[in-house]
Nucleic acid binder design. Structure first.
Length: 407
DNA sequence: TCTGGGGTCCTCCCACAT
DNA sequence: TCTGATGTGGGAGGACCC
């Protein structure tokens, strides 16, 4: 999807079409989630600190973003894709891989299918998308990027809309591209590659694989070398299992008090537990993440004997992990996550070696009752008592603060 | 310039078992 | 019984993606 978040917003705000619009965090610690093509002409791009974006383009209209709405639109678009092929692998809210091999006899060439999808997405959602078609996922992705509208100083120019990389032409397309275009080449890897004289994908492809491995490591080097030769054996995989569920937040101001941090942990653990139970999964490893004011970041984790999905249990483990960290320098970001996920949500019975003392474990019925109440009356209807303050109960939901704390 | 949130994957180190 | 090699899982950190 092209400038997805912004495009969804413009459906509600047609008065802003053609103007520089930025979706993202408005606060001093926020970042740009998406920028309209008019804003991009000023050098604004996603992941840029909002402060800088505002400096580059003071006339831009900032919108706070609506993660829930984008998820709903995304789900409808993904459902539309599924009418073409069951092999749909969502990559994010606004991107997906489709394996249309099995649909070609029914629907025509990949190029024809791509146009049909574009037209149908626009007819249904009034949103534009760009499509790349190729024999591998990686090349299809590069194709879709190349097909997007072009950014020029005078505004957006039309793109290819659909770009097919025909079999046999892969290397001619790939090799002139900058090495940064390869999946897995970010700032650090690019510097390592530049040290051995690599600027383009073609430069990398011309080197012996051992040289690439020497520069960036074994697994990474082998992978990049293969991509540079247009070799990408990964299949489109529908129904990929989630591997972790987490919630993290940057605070508007650094926090120093342990009591306040504990409350935030409970809030986040409650959100993570809620999402785990909604997905009917549970995980054995609880991880906390702490980022200090100077941006140094620590993680601490603990693996339990059995899977957990209860907010109270996750919070209990998270608090013991936080005991290992001194918050005195000031905590900028706090996060809680669960990994080692399994669909087996049956709870491990533990030996109570304390002679029957009360533990934090509580019957599953309590969580089940909470879930029922939330289904009927909304997420904010019930929650841990510690989260009740002057404004009532405040719980956290995914996407509540997607792009940084508000102003 | 000053850096969000939700993820995945890889590497290194260490402890422990074989 | 001790020692070294090897495999494995957990923990921590980091790079990268959208």
């Amino acid at each position: 999807m092209d400038a997805f978040f912004v495009s969804v917003e413009l459906l509600e705000r047609p008065d802003l079409v053609g103007k520089p619009v930025i979706v993202g965090g408005s606060g001093n610690r926020g970042v740009v989630a998406a920028a309209s093509y008019a804003a991009r002409a000023f050098g604004v791009h996603s992941a840029m600190p909002s402060v800088r974006a505002r400096r580059l383009c003071p006339q831009a209209v900032f919108l706070p973003g609506n993660h829930q709405l984008y998820s709903e639109v995304s789900a409808r678009v993904m459902a539309l894709f599924a009418r073409y092929t069951p092999e749909v692998e969502p990559l994010s809210l606004d991107e997906a891989f489709l394996d249309v091999t099995g649909a070609m006899r029914r629907l025509g060439t990949p190029e024809s299918i791509a146009h049909q999808i574009r037209n149908e997405v626009f007819a249904q959602e009034r949103l534009h998308c760009s499509v790349g078609a190729a024999t591998t996922k990686f090349l299809a992705k590069l194709g879709s990027q190349a097909a997007k509208p072009k950014i020029t100083p005078t505004g957006p120019g039309p793109g290819f809309e659909v770009l097919v990389i025909e079999p046999g032409t892969e290397l001619a397309f790939l090799h002139p591209l900058p090495a940064k275009a390869l999946w897995g080449v970010g700032k650090v890897t690019l510097e390592k590659l530049q040290r051995i004289g690599v600027e383009t994908v073609g430069d990398l492809a011309a080197l012996p694989v051992e040289t690439v491995i020497g520069a960036v490591g074994k697994a990474h080097g082998r992978h990049l070398y293969d991509l540079a030769h247009a070799r990408d054996p990964r299949q489109v995989e529908a129904n990929l299992a989630t591997k972790s569920v987490s919630h993290e937040e940057t605070f508007a101001e650094d926090l120093f008090e342990r009591q306040r941090l504990d409350r935030e942990l409970v809030r986040m653990a409650d959100s993570v537990g809620n999402r785990l139970r909604k997905s009917e999964i549970a995980g054995r490893t609880v991880t906390i993440k702490v980022r200090f004011g100077d941006f140094t970041t620590l993680t601490r984790s603990a693996t339990q004997s059995g899977p957990v999905d209860s907010g109270a249990e996750i919070a209990r483990v998270a608090k013991t992990l936080l005991d290992q960290i001194d918050p005195a320098p000031g905590v900028r970001l706090l996060g809680v996550g669960v990994t080692g996920l399994t669909e087996d949500t049956s709870r491990q019975l533990t030996l109570d070696l304390d002679g029957g003392s009360a533990t934090s474990e509580r019957p599953r019925e309590v969580d089940a009752a909470i879930d029922d109440i939330r289904r009927k009356f909304g997420d904010g209807s019930i929650g841990p008592a510690v989260l009740v303050d002057g404004d009532g109960l405040r719980v956290k939901r995914k996407g509540d603060q997607q792009w940084g704390p508000d102003q």
